[in-house]
Simulated assay, not measured.
Amino acid sequence: MTAPSAFRSGKTYRDENFPVASRLIPRRHRDVILAFYEFVRTADDIADHPSLRAQDKLDLLDRMEGDLLGFGNWSEEASALRRALAERELAPHHAQDLLKAFRLDVVKRRYADWNDLLNYCRYSAMPVGRFVLDVHGESRATWSASDSICAALQIINHLQDCGDDFRKLDRIYLPEDALEAFGLGTEALGEATASPQLRRCLASLARRAEDLLRQGDDLPVLVRNTRLALEIAVIHMLALRLTRYIAGRDPLGQRMHLGALEVAATSCRAALKGVSQRIGSRLSLSVKHE
């Protein structure tokens, strides 16, 4: 069977919407996070591959999971992640949850409502944040805020890519009831430009994504590791900026990603805000203890 690397799209962690193991992350944690990314990226590319049959995709994903669990060494990405996890005494269950999401991508093309989409995010997004928190030895008490942020990041990606997802994969993550509420059918996503109704629909979903982000506002303060907290603060602010960006643009006819200068400026503001929040939180705690 062809190795999984043959099905890679060419996308790397540097091409993602949000930072992946940036220089803010302590060096000792970056290798295991990047091994996790390589495994996940490869599995995602298999699920999205345009010429593979559905059953072939599922077979490849199953074999990657087998290698992750130590039943073989066919997949270089799975074997590398298995070794990295073993060195850190970490379990593979977060990676396994993501494989469930990719299997869903193979067999499920539509989502009925917001709850249906959030259930997908439970496997496609939330395990990523939980993994990074586990790598840093953070408390599971941080998971709830992280889950909200990660679900929002996933939904933002869906809003940005809704046209390409439909045209290239016949996959629609926008909830069917949201489209129906604005009098839209699936064909609206195949147009060259978005109708006013589609833009209003996407704006409403972007606001719901923003609500999820607000549920995770405290995460940069809750985590103990300062450098991780700053990474989260940057991602959080970039995501908030994107929800407003999406609400005012045409996802079918316009670029839906922030420019490099805007990303840099937003990241600097977020890091400064994160430092300020952590100092303020510690001062508040010290006053309470006096």
Score class of each variant (00 low, 15 high):
Val221Ser: 10
Leu219Ser: 07
His236Trp: 06
His49Trp: 02
Ala78Gly: 08
Leu58Arg: 12
His158Lys: 12
His257Tyr: 11
Asn119Cys: 11
Gly259Phe: 06
Ile232Trp: 05
Gly66Phe: 02
Lys11His: 10
Gln96Pro: 15
Asn157Thr: 14
Ser51Ile: 04
Glu262Met: 11
Val107Ser: 11
Met256Pro: 01
Ala47Tyr: 01
Arg278Lys: 15
Ser22Val: 09
Ala35Phe: 04
Leu179Pro: 10
Asp62Pro: 07
His93Cys: 04
Arg282Ile: 14
Val106Asn: 00
Arg27Glu: 05
Leu272Thr: 15
Ala239Tyr: 01
Ala84Phe: 10
Arg28Thr: 11
Ile155His: 04
Leu238Asn: 05
Val32Arg: 00
Arg27Asp: 03
Arg214Tyr: 06
Val223Phe: 07
Gly259Pro: 04
Phe39Asn: 00
Ser204Tyr: 15
Thr186Ser: 15
Cys201Leu: 05
Gly190Pro: 06
Ile172Gly: 03
Cys150Gln: 07
Arg109Cys: 08
Glu176Asp: 15
Glu191Thr: 13
His289Val: 13
Arg249Trp: 03
Leu205Ala: 12
Gly274Tyr: 00
Arg82Val: 00
Val40Gln: 07
Leu198Val: 09
Arg255Leu: 14
Leu68Lys: 04
Ala86Met: 10
Glu87Arg: 14
Thr42Phe: 00
Val132Lys: 01
Asp147Thr: 05
Leu240Gln: 14
Gln254Gly: 00
Gly253Met: 03
Leu222Cys: 06
Asp211His: 13
Asn119Ile: 08
Ala206Val: 05
Ala271Leu: 09
Ala229Asn: 08
Pro220Thr: 11
Pro196His: 13
Arg14Gly: 02
Trp114Tyr: 14
Ser148Pro: 03
Ser5Ala: 10
Ala209Glu: 07
Tyr13Met: 02
Pro26Phe: 11
Arg122Ile: 03
Lys288Tyr: 02
Leu238Pro: 02
Gly183Cys: 07
Leu52Phe: 08
Ala101Gln: 05
Met237Pro: 00
Ala152Gly: 12
Gly163Lys: 02
Arg167Ile: 15
Arg30Cys: 06
Ser195Gly: 13
Arg63Asp: 13
Arg27Lys: 12
His93Trp: 04
Arg109Phe: 10
Ala151Cys: 12
Glu76Ser: 15
Thr42Ser: 05
Leu52Tyr: 05
Pro251His: 02
Glu262Gln: 13
Gly137Ile: 08
Arg63Asn: 13
Ser276Asp: 14
Arg14Thr: 09
Arg200Ser: 15
Phe166Lys: 07
Ser139Gln: 11
Ala145His: 08
Leu213Thr: 02
Leu219Thr: 00
Glu77His: 13
Leu24His: 10
His158Glu: 11
Pro196Ser: 15
Ser79Gly: 09
Arg199Thr: 09
Ala101Tyr: 03
Asp211Ile: 14
Ala35Cys: 10
Ala84Gln: 09
